[in-house]
Design a protein around this nucleic acid. Structure first.
Lengths: 353, 353
DNA sequence: GTGAAAGCGCTAACAG
DNA sequence: CTGTTAGCGCTTTCAC
């Protein structure tokens, strides 16, 4: 069961002073050995033995206070269980770990005030960067207060990174790593249009949220580019982005009368899965009777053969960390937009009449 | 865009000293006001104004060094994207947040050495607790080194918590919050047995891993309790616990000849989903031809009508945090086992011949 | 009710 | 190559 290291005093952990005493050197020497600076082989081994004997581990708060970077990064995210955010969060954590950083995490449940509180908490922790993941309602309060935090972080040689969310404005010292919400939606719409579909139901818009607005805009742009008149009655607003909501919205639509659309573009894969279930339940086949496209390309999309827009979850998270910890703070790229593309599976069929 | 707070010196954040100067008081007074200790109303407001003006936020490292608890807890988990671990991780984070704690997170990819490294890193951070989530290979090295860390944490008034993992032994100062792996498996097996099934395929055993071993043991115990002779050829070992593996294992089994079982008990829901797909692909209906039971009760199980064993993910994570931060360190419960139960859906049918 | 001063554990000059 | 010493920003006695 491993020899239990004797502590210099019960209830306390050994400090650098204990190590120094035990090795018969000064604390400066211990610090040097631990920092990998040149020292005589004999002293080095003595120190290392003392460290092992005492079970010494450095106090990272003391180091942080003495001027060393904390080597921590903070991630603030809606939720970890959501497959969408979870993937990005995992990518951030992995990249941070690869760069020798520890992650502080806080979840917000999508609430702006909890998000602001979380950023403030991270400010206290002096992390090397604060990475905000995902969706927000882009209103004035958000912009104003986040801009303040961005300045505070910049003043402390840290950085605010917006991941999957648009920049705050030209004068705000923040890095934004987005993906092309609108472009993906435009491409998906074009995909349906070139299969002959003209009446495309846009399902699950959530007004005010940045990603949702971007996707809807892309849908409209896609229609416009093909000279198709937009029809507001085809834009269905939902209350959340979950599977059950997709089911509910589609079922209501189908109950209201014969389908007045030949294809459905759902705001994300989960809504698409719910909509699909409602369609099947209503005796409509996918894609024979109705074509269906999703957004996000999460793993379950492949299982149900859903044509969807692929999102670079992993790259998003990793790029955020790389930029955050990038060398040149001044010359750093502060806005990158990653590409999205349509992944063709089996849920779209050319319209034949 | 909000007035940008003037900094006392560029590139630095304001300290308590700056606040003191600005308010015309001593740093001790500032500390007291911030700590909510009694002070004259006039001074209090002066200090608070200075804090606001300067945009002061306390340095948590300095506080930690001065003897205040960090109010952080650490969570070490296999992966955040795995639905299983992700749920527990989210529960831990939520409960920690509710208790005013911030979470440090580290993911290990299931690797023991990365796990040990993570715990050591957390030791440096002086967190109030270190919570280890999920599955491990329960070998000697693991037990020995984890016991050392448990002692080191205990010596520093912190705590090691094993969440979803068995205790390390009677002399090791660690808290374990498990769920009844074996009991759930026994109940699921009994459920199939009482539906008349005798030849039940156990799919996806992963040798050496604590949860996997517990589930297999429960399966065997269930058979034994009903006087059914165990048949090793019905215990199928897999290389991982993912959906694709369930598909692969089942397909191989079906290719090898006519099914020699009437029911399948998969080691988890994902394996069950894969197996189900393979069964359907082979022209076998679930449950008409083959009954199927999973384990974990993650959200997708409901979608496919899978009868499964419910796991208290949320309670597991929250209990871990509660015990970790519990009042009495000595009298604390150090081993709790949460119950599991069978959730009956539509994937099991009585055997008729 | 408030200020002065010691010290938490560590790093980084600065001397030797 | 090594030891002495001065802080990092904060809390907390101890005096006043």
């Amino acid at each position: 069961m491993g020899r239990r290291p004797r502590e210099p005093e019960a209830g306390t952990r050994p400090t650098i002073r204990d190590v120094a005493r035990s090795a018969g050197v000064s604390i400066a020497t211990v610090s040097r050995v631990l920092g990998g600076q040149p020292s005589a082989t004999a002293t080095r081994t003595r120190v290392q033995r003392a460290v092992r004997d005492l079970g010494y581990v450095a106090n990272s708060h003391a180091r942080a206070l003495a001027g060393i970077s904390t080597r921590n990064v903070a991630i603030v995210v809606n939720s970890v269980v959501s497959p969408f955010y979870g993937h990005i969060a995992q990518a951030v954590e992995s990249q941070a770990a690869e760069e020798g950083r520890l992650c502080l995490i806080s979840t917000t449940g999508g609430d702006l005030h909890r998000e602001l509180a979380a950023v403030k908490l991270m400010l206290q922790e002096h992390t090397d960067a604060v990475i905000l993941v995902g969706n927000v309602v882009d209103n004035d309060e958000y912009r104003r207060r986040m801009a303040e935090y961005a300045h505070a972080l910049a003043a402390a040689a840290s950085r605010l990174v917006l991941c999957g969310r648009p920049p705050l404005g030209p004068r705000v010292p923040a890095i934004a790593v987005e993906y092309d919400n609108a472009g993906g939606a435009r491409a998906a719409t074009a995909h349906l249009l070139s299969a002959g579909h003209r009446r495309i139901l846009y399902l699950g818009h959530k007004p005010g949220f940045t990603t949702s607005e971007g996707r809807l805009a892309g849908y409209r742009a896609g229609l416009a580019a093909h000279g198709v008149e937009p029809d507001e009655s085809l834009e269905v607003t939902g209350v959340n982005l979950e599977r059950a909501e997709g089911y509910r919205l589609m079922r209501e639509r189908l109950r209201a009368g014969a389908p007045d659309f030949t294809a459905v573009f759902a705001a994300n894969d989960q809504l698409a899965a719910g909509a699909r279930q409602a369609l099947l339940g209503h005796g409509l086949r996918v894609p024979e009777d109705v074509s269906l496209v999703g957004y996000d390309d999460l793993p379950p999309a492949a299982d149900i053969g859903l044509t969807t827009v692929h999102l670079p979850h992993d790259e998003l998270g990793r790029t955020a960390v790389r930029l955050a910890l990038g060398r040149a703070p001044d010359r750093a790229e502060d806005h990158v937009v990653l590409g999205t593309h349509v992944v063709v599976r089996q849920s779209v069929r050319p319209l034949t009449r």
